[in-house]
Design a protein around this nucleic acid. Structure first.
Length: 262
DNA sequence: ATGGTGGAAAGTCCA
């Protein structure tokens, strides 16, 4: 069985329902994981997705902020929804496909502007969130699992447009990169995107604030697809749909794809 | 140190 999975921080699923439908119609992933739906789960639009064959959905939502959802052409059943760091935020949903594969969809806290937990509570919450993710995977090591989402960290030098300039910028600081590495190690997660595309700069997010995001190209790879070692060899054809950043009224993130032969 | 843009929702808060 082969299936293609995509992950996309949509920055309001209701405002950008047309873009979701465009992605589903044109790229036809079997599973689409969304973050920052910014909607209560009962107000997530379903009809258009259903008409394209995405008849299954699991998610967590809240009013105005956060929110994660998984749309699927195949049956998917909810298995968990964590509230790491006890923030009371809708930042995680996990579901199981009929082939037994578990999909974790995460929206890790952005962490505010100042990379110092003494002066910025949000930065501490981000680190704590990652520590609790690490502990969860350390306690029960995942198998046949895929973890995707907006992890809000660009770990490698070639995951950002200028490594030195971003060392003190939240999303690329050494302490965040270390926390992410510990989470990855705890679950034995393989970075599928970098397994497929080991060399060269790779971004999935470009700020709205840049005058010309495409020409300036000051991007960061904040969105990730990981898999456990028992299925990571089955992954291939990773890509980032940069063109979606240029669609009308876009999200500031582009969708990331991977295909699994299982 | 600041501002730049965008979404939710009606204040600002958040990214």
């Amino acid at each position: 069985m082969t299936f293609t999975l995509a992950t996309w921080n949509i920055n309001s699923v209701r405002l950008r329902e047309p873009l979701v439908l465009k992605l589903l119609a044109e790229e036809k992933p079997d599973v689409l994981c969304l973050q920052e739906c910014k909607s209560p789960v009962e107000k997530i639009p379903l009809e258009g997705m259903r008409a394209l064959g995405y008849t299954h959905m699991v998610g967590r939502g809240q009013k105005g902020y956060n929110g994660v959802a998984i749309f699927s052409r195949m049956p998917i059943t909810e298995v968990s929804a964590a509230d790491h760091a006890s923030l009371g935020h809708a930042r995680h949903i996990a579901g199981r496909l009929e082939n037994g594969v578990i999909i974790h969809n995460y929206y890790v806290p952005a962490g505010g502007d100042v990379p110092d937990r003494e002066v910025n509570v949000k930065f501490g919450q981000k680190l704590d969130y990652l520590t609790e993710m690490r502990d969860a995977f350390h306690g029960e090591r995942p198998e046949k699992a895929i973890l995707v989402g907006d992890l809000n960290i660009a770990p490698r030098e070639d995951d950002v447009w200028d490594h030195k300039k971003l060392l003190k910028i939240v999303s690329h600081t050494p302490i965040e990169v270390e926390h992410l590495a510990q989470t990855q190690d705890a679950g034995r997660w393989v970075d599928v995107t970098r397994q497929d595309i080991p060399d060269g700069r790779l971004y999935s997010w470009w700020s709205y604030r840049a005058a010309d995001w495409d020409a300036a190209d000051k991007g960061r790879r904040l969105d990730h697809i990981w898999a456990t070692p028992d299925i990571s060899n089955a992954a291939h054809s990773s890509r980032i749909l940069r063109a979606a950043r240029g669609w009308e009224q876009p999200s500031d993130h582009a969708p990331v794809f991977a295909t699994f032969d299982l």
